[in-house]
């Protein structure tokens, strides 16, 4: 088994899994506590528009798709604010509109010869050095921004009215959160694809919140869970010749199913005193 580690593509796959786990663990915690799963799905699918744009314009795929997703997420945030916070409608537009935009641009791109399935469902075993470098840069940016804005993002996640009374720019922080979600989603696309990324954002965080004592702890635990899912999924994909992204997500979903069957930690509400 250790022989496998000598292969460069396996080394890159493990490094990609590590980076994706950090991105999905950190941002997954924020997605779950902010109830933004649907939004994250919309941002992920909008990323397909970025993929189409990259092929149409001949630009590098991951940076283009990441930039496109961030702009789409920010546009959704601004639009929902103008539309009296109808975020669900805006996300629906983002979701389908981004996909349609990507398909149309690819239709208009002459002679493209790409395995689009790898963007939809990921291909962690074929992540190249350039893609890995871009992923590392995105994760560094993501972790740096979350670290810097951790307390404001925590306040935003807990109570926006409170954040406002403490002089925090709630609107700008909301947009920052959307942009960070887009960055995390696009970091994960090469490994598990934009269709499946939502599961790696939510399942590790869902499991982590049961045992975490803080949001930061939830981020760390979720990252560890995500890395475990990636390793097991990768192993299954390698030995059983399965699609790697789907195998990783299958492991994640199965883990949640098992966890749901286990007894939860008992929570005792103390009686009201005085």
């Amino acid at each position: 088994m250790l022989d496998l580690l000598a292969y460069p593509f396996v080394q890159r796959a493990l490094a990609a899994a590590f980076l994706v786990s950090i991105a999905c663990g950190v941002m997954g915690a924020l997605v779950v506590v902010n109830r933004m799963t649907f939004l994250a799905g919309g941002v992920a699918h909008a990323g397909y528009g970025g993929v189409g744009l990259a092929f149409f314009a001949g630009w590098p795929v991951l940076p283009t798709a990441a930039g496109f997703s961030v702009l789409a997420a920010l546009a959704a945030g601004l639009l929902s604010r103008r539309r009296d916070e109808r975020m669900d409608v805006t996300v629906g537009l983002l979701w389908a509109g981004g996909m349609a935009f990507g398909v149309l641009l690819l239709d208009l791109t002459e002679g493209y010869n790409v395995d689009l399935m790898s963007y939809l469902f990921g291909s962690i075993l074929t992540v190249g050095p350039d893609t890995l470098s871009t992923m590392a840069l995105l994760v560094a940016l993501l972790v740096g921004l979350v670290g810097l804005f951790y307390r404001p993002l925590l306040a935003l996640s807990l109570d926006r009215e409170f954040a406002h009374t403490r002089g925090l720019p709630v609107g700008a922080l909301h947009l920052l959160l959307l942009g960070l979600i887009a960055l995390a989603v696009m970091t994960a696309v090469p490994a598990i694809g934009l269709v499946l990324v939502i599961a790696l954002l939510t399942t590790p965080a869902h499991l982590a919140e049961r045992h975490a004592g803080s949001l930061a702890g939830m981020m760390v635990l979720a990252s560890l869970w995500a890395f475990a899912f990636c390793l097991i999924g990768l192993g299954l994909a390698f030995w059983l010749d399965l699609t790697s992204g789907a195998a990783i997500i299958a492991v994640a979903v199965a883990s949640v199913a098992v966890a749901e069957l286990l007894p939860r930690r008992k929570r005792i509400a103390r009686p009201e005193t005085g």
Binding site: L154, D159, S214
Partner: peptide, 10 residues
């Protein structure tokens, strides 16, 4: 308190 169920904060 508009706290998501299970939000880990002391």
């Amino acid at each position: 308190m508009t706290l998501t169920q299970g939000f880990p904060v002391k």
